[in-house]
């Protein structure tokens, strides 16, 4: 079976500084991979390199066996490589449903449609309604996103990604800024994702990491220092010293 996502030797340098240093990752279908590391370890940079938002200095990214290293971000996204942002990036002038609709429009490749056709509208509405229900946002559908509480905005951020029906989903601190009491909604939603999907998530909350991850990658100074199952990582001396020691939360 081909891996969903295969990152080989991925490198990025700014000037002389290597912010991403020969990173290798392999994501199998169904995997829930946590990307952890201290602040400034280059986790978000790595996500940007994988999606193509940043151009890599070297190395390759393969998506479902195909080399996408040379493809621009939108093309990778259209092939099912979808990410969310650490700081919520919603379409600020729109309602919740309209935000999800933008995702649906792109998923169904209708962004050039200049006619309102009933069949197309129905398909878009259905996709939006499904995600709204999944995230329990149905009664918020017509609320402008600018009026939502931050926790709900994070849900919409996730919703935009879900409506894209990704094959590989990269979540950049999905629960960041969300009150503890609400973070379970986001984690439940991640839990409900289709089985064959591959998820990479950046997370600082170790409880969440150990609850959801099937695999943990530890990134320090742009390099992977260790990869393993949660129990392996928990037992790893180097990780304890470098990561938990330095940046104890």
């Amino acid at each position: 079976m081909t891996a969903l996502l295969e990152v080989r030797n991925l490198t990025k340098s700014f000037g002389g500084l290597k912010v991403t240093n020969h990173v290798d990752l392999t994501l199998e279908p169904g995997a829930r991979m946590a990307l952890i590391g201290p602040n400034g370890a280059g986790k978000t940079t790595l996500v940007n390199l994988i999606t193509g938002a940043l151009a890599a200095s070297g190395g390759s990214v393969r998506l479902m066996g195909e080399d996408v290293s040379a493809l621009p971000e939108p093309v990778r996204a259209a092939r099912g490589l979808i990410r969310t942002f650490q700081v919520t990036r919603l379409f600020g002038s729109m309602t919740v449903a309209e935000n999800l609709r933008i995702g649906a429009i792109h998923r169904q490749r209708r962004s050039y449609a200049i006619l309102r056709r009933t069949a197309v509208e129905q398909a878009l509405d259905e996709a939006v309604a499904r995600v709204l229900a999944q995230l329990r946002l149905t009664d918020r559908a017509d609320t402008p996103v600018a009026r939502l509480a931050y926790g709900e905005q994070r849900l919409v951020e996730l919703g935009i990604a879900l409506v894209m029906e990704p094959r590989v989903l990269l979540l950049d601190e999905p629960a960041a800024g969300v009150p503890q009491s609400e973070s379970h909604i986001i984690m439940d939603a991640i839990d409900d994702l289709p089985e064959d999907l591959g998820v990479v998530f950046i997370e600082h909350d170790m409880d969440l990491v150990f609850r959801f991850a099937t695999e943990i990658v530890v990134l320090v100074s742009g390099a992977v220092i260790c990869t393993g199952t949660p129990s392996e990582i928990a037992a790893n001396e180097e990780v304890r010293r470098v990561y938990f020691g330095e940046a104890a939360h």
Partner: peptide, 16 residues
């Protein structure tokens, strides 16, 4: 309209 609100976000969804 979405591009006006946040062009980069649209790009991350596969929009040109």
């Amino acid at each position: 309209r979405a591009i006006r609100d946040d062009a980069g976000r649209v790009g991350s969804l596969g929009g040109r």
